[in-house]
Nucleic acid binder design. Structure first.
Length: 303
DNA sequence: TTGATTTGACCCAG
DNA sequence: CTGGGTCAAATCAA
């Protein structure tokens, strides 16, 4: 498989694939470093687990990128097959969720698991159960003591395909039956969400029609404030050229799974195709710059 | 047929 | 020991 043989239209997929693999490389390097320090691994098993899940997600994302490539079907994988035994790496097997699931670390018995501790948790209250852009699958419901309403448990639909460990819990608030408490655990590492990307104004001054689009779609990612920018808010330009744009002061650094600080982006470029449909909005944009999760512009859409 | 939901069982953390 | 989070077989729905 030669990247250089890809048509120009696949250049964007090439960038996406490279970013996915780069993220995987960073995480793998980190894991390798951790393995050399068993005491750190032991005291940070959860993070270790997270990093593994993210690496699994990276592979899934990369495969998705390849498959979405226009000339994917023309790509020969003979060489790959030659390097493995005939029973390994069969594409049909990879497509089979049950097979992938069977290959994952075994839970010896049902219900045998390590309870989440130290995971990234985010709680929100909503009036209705709106689609948050991710594909969730309900896996449980429990009556909770001292609570009128049961708690429902959801996991990411792509848990087994892409190793995404995101879960959420939904529970109706007792005092306010029209409201739901939604608790999110862990970040999505899958590439199949429909979450729209954030549109971030490049400048605190709305006079410039320059827009940054960040592909960091995960609101849970720790963000770093940059001086000179006003805090995030939803606003509208006076001339209605940018309706309900999110003016954001956020910039994203890389995500370090050990310190849980942003060092490696959790949801890289793979989100780029989701939710952006300026063409139908009827609004003009003079200049649009795409940035990756590192805040680095990588192409200009229009000028 | 396949994917989603329901629900009782199972097990861990406190 | 108990409450809560997860698993997985059974069931449902498209």
């Amino acid at each position: 498989m030669e990247f250089s043989s890809w048509p120009e239209s696949s250049a964007i997929n090439r960038i996406k694939a490279i970013q996915e693999l780069t993220q995987g490389q960073i995480l793998t390097d980190w894991l390798q470093e951790m393995i050399g320090q068993p005491e750190k691994v032991e005291s940070n098993l959860e993070l270790f687990d997270d990093a593994l899940a993210q690496i699994i997600g990276v592979f899934g994302n990369t495969v998705s990128v390849f498959k979405s490539s226009s000339n994917f079907n023309n790509i020969s994988f003979n060489q790959t097959h030659d390097m493995t035994s005939p029973n390994d790496c069969d594409d049909n097997m990879l497509k089979d969720t049950k097979y992938v699931k069977a290959m994952m670390p075994l839970k010896v018995r049902r219900g045998c698991y390590k309870r989440s501790k130290n995971t990234m948790i985010h709680t929100t209250v909503t009036f209705n159960l709106v689609n948050d852009g991710y594909a969730w699958r309900k896996y449980g419901q429990k009556e909770i003591i001292n609570s009128e309403h049961p708690r429902q448990y959801y996991r990411c639909t792509h848990k087994y395909e892409q190793g995404c460990k995101a879960t959420k819990q939904v529970q109706m608030i007792d005092d306010e039956p029209s409201k739901y408490m939604i608790t999110y655990h862990r970040h999505h590492t899958c590439s199949n969400s429909q979450t729209p990307c954030h549109i971030i104004l490049d400048s605190p001054s709305p006079k410039e029609n320059s827009v940054l689009i960040s592909f960091d779609t995960n609101p849970l990612i720790k963000k770093k404030q940059v001086s000179g920018f006003s805090p995030s808010l939803t606003t509208q330009k006076p001339n209605n050229r940018f309706p309900s744009l999110i003016f954001s002061s956020d910039c994203y650094t890389t995500w370090d799974p050990f310190t849980q600080s942003s060092k490696v982006p959790l949801e890289p470029l793979s989100m780029m195709s989701y939710g952006l449909d300026m063409s139908t909005s009827g609004y003009e944009i003079d200049d649009m710059i795409l940035i990756d999760n590192f805040g680095v512009p990588f192409s200009k859409l229009c000028s």
